[in-house]
Amino acid sequence: MVEARLTADGAPFAVRDGVYASGPSTLREFVEAVWGYGDRVFLVSEGGTTTYREFFDAACGLARRLSGEYGLRPGDRAVVAMRNRPEWQIAFWAAQLAGLVAVPLNAWWTEDEFAYALDDCAPGVLLVDEERAGR
């Protein structure tokens, strides 16, 4: 099983007692570790599968848009509020790749709870799915 090989003692993502023992310490190290998996399946969802390459292409593309089109700079906040789908992973990692502070919010919060969190963190962008857009 691939997971066992990745999380075994001495492996790149070794886990002890449910915590990474000596995994990548930087985003760059994480990206370099997974580049080698290219066309292997990374995410599985109702809509199908996403390979590592497809995932990183999408995350890098969104990261470029956040920096270029939206003018966000490292340290700006990016709220991620959506269901647990591949788009959540892409949005979260795109924020990381752009140097932004990803602020994941509970997708089931009420409008008042969202309003409080948004006022508190003052995000530069909201990365939300259609269900949350109204709230």
Results as ranks from 00 to 15, higher is better:
V15M: 13
P74W: 02
Y116G: 03
P12E: 02
D39A: 15
V44L: 12
R83Q: 11
D129S: 11
A8V: 03
A33W: 05
R64S: 12
A133Q: 07
L27Y: 09
L105H: 07
W108I: 00
A33T: 12
S45A: 14
R135K: 14
S25I: 01
R28C: 04
G23Q: 04
P104V: 04
M1C: 12
D57W: 01
L118D: 05
L127E: 03
V103R: 11
V31G: 00
D76M: 02
P123T: 08
E111H: 11
F30C: 10
F92L: 12
V2A: 14
L126D: 06
G134H: 09
V41Q: 08
R40L: 14
L97P: 00
A133Y: 08
D57N: 09
V34S: 07
F13A: 09
W35I: 00
R135W: 07
T49V: 14
D9C: 00
F30I: 07
C121H: 09
V80F: 10
V101Q: 08
F92A: 12
A11C: 08
R65T: 11
N84I: 00
T7H: 05
R85N: 04
G134N: 07
S25K: 14
A78P: 03
Y52N: 01
A14F: 04
W93H: 15
Y37C: 07
A63I: 05
L100G: 06
W109Y: 13
V34I: 15
G61H: 12
R5A: 15
E87S: 08
G71V: 07
A4T: 06
R5D: 11
G23L: 01
G47N: 11
R40H: 13
E54H: 02
E130L: 13
G71H: 09
F55N: 00
G68V: 01
E130W: 07
N106Q: 04
A91Y: 03
T26N: 04
E32M: 10
A59N: 04
P74F: 07
G47I: 04
V15E: 12
E29T: 05
R64C: 06
